[in-house]
Nucleic acid binder design. Sequence first.
RNA 1: GCUCCGUUGGUGUAGUCCGGCCAAUCAUUUCGGCCUUUCGAGCCGAUGACCUGGGUUCAAAUCCCAGACGGAGCACCA
Length: 495
Amino acid sequence: MEPSSTSADSLARQDGDEYDEIRMRVAPNPNGPWHIGHARMPAVIGTYKEMYDGWFCVRFDDTDPETKRPDLDAYDQIIEDIEYLGFDPDAVYRASDRMETYYDHARDLIEKGGAYTCSCPQGDFSDMKNSGEACPHRDKDAETTLSEFEAMVDGEYDSGEMVLRVRTDIEHKNPALRDWVAFRMIDTPHPREEASEYRCWPMLDFQSGVDDHLLDVTHIIRGIDLQDSAKRQRFVYDYFGWEYPEVLHWGHVQIDAFDVKMSTSTIKQLIDEGELDGWDDPRAPTVAAFRRRGIRGEAITDAMVELGTSTSDVDLAMSAVYSHNRDLIDDDANRYFFVRESGDNGDFGTVELPLAGDAPGEGTPPVHPEHEDRGRRSLPVDDAVVIESADLPEAGEKLWLKGYGPVEYDGSELRYTDDDIEVVREGEADVVHWVPAGEETVSVRLRTPEGDVTGYAEPAFAGTDADEMVQFVRVGFARVDGHGDDESVTYFAHE
RNA sequence: GCUCCGUUGGUGUAGUCCGGCCAAUCAUUUCGGCCUUUCGAGCCGAUGACCUGGGUUCAAAUCCCAGACGGAGCACCA
């Protein structure tokens, strides 16, 4: 599997020879578990690491204890999600552990004349900046700045009272680059115990820029929303005489198949309101939900890598993920019949039909059509079967009960016939799945992205193990979540 | 308002830097056929795209100009 897109691919390929080691980072904000869009970064970076025998770390950029407040559980969940996608980070860092490093670099920057403390109200500065005017603090000397910065570090200001700005070019034609904020005061303590005493926090552009250099990152991938970051950070790099890594910006990913908006805060809210059962609710577009549905991380990774690294926004078709996953699981997934009786969404129903004629006492479909050595299932038939209402033919028409045989519907009963499989070839009979009536069928709940579906599976289904992948014939692939006293619970993967 | 960036079939992508081998690659989707007591898979086939207009050139998806459309930034968020 190769990443297919030009820029990053050729970038890394060309540079593969120029660097001793390709070094990259995944830099998430741990403000919640991941939605599926987050999988793109580790998928692509991890794949590059494998292609070029490179290195990558996870660095939690958790420098905003307030607006993007970290979720303490998310740190570990994100690492688990990355492992599920198929990659092991070579190192894990937390920006909130590295505060003294950022302070030290800020002091250096101040001494080099690259920064000044500023107490302008936000709006006032913005107005001046937009008209290209320096604020009164801009020509402050390094000594004053240094002492005011130390006061910031010591927490002597409240939120909003003082910031440290990088001295860039106040007349730069791009207003986004003019004298941006490197450090600000935040009154809310960081949720991590180890970092809870800090009040003076670096902004992303400063923290991330310093870390990328200190970690010897050679290649950065990030979203187009950060396309000005490199330009901002270059001012700091220039003050320090550092060389900026190769950088690439890609667009947003949208997923075509979910009603739920793909945003951490939206999903969190739906969970809090009880609309979703949790982060792994199959209706949620989260990594955890995909995992519970039995979609292999590798399938997600492959689909993400195929998206490439275009700077325009892309739509990820779920069918691409599903297609990859089918390839991965089909061989292992044994077949079972499951008739759907009712669902939250969808028009399901079952019908029980007596058998007539010289009907056999058992159906014996293969466990897996490609693997005769796995044997055949046994569906003991007494005197009636249950099929899905949608499969009920017109009176006088025929059906082929899969793994059992040909029957003709007379309006009330299914009469076993001696038809040859020819009737199927000729299109006279549809092949349908079924379960025996009155026998030991298994009550099954199938949890899907469109809501739950309940019905009955054939007796042999009771012998499946939790976590096993099965294919409900003509319904789709599912992961067995567990067998309870009242019902078995399964999660729908895809058709 | 200022500043960036992008635009190849339904979706994603290759090709664009270094114009010709591109009547445009591969995957997915959809549809059809084959195979299989006929699910899925597999095999075969079909449908389907270079944003528009100019220009340069023997030759343009590829270079130049203009326009349209779309996205992003101008936060004491990441």
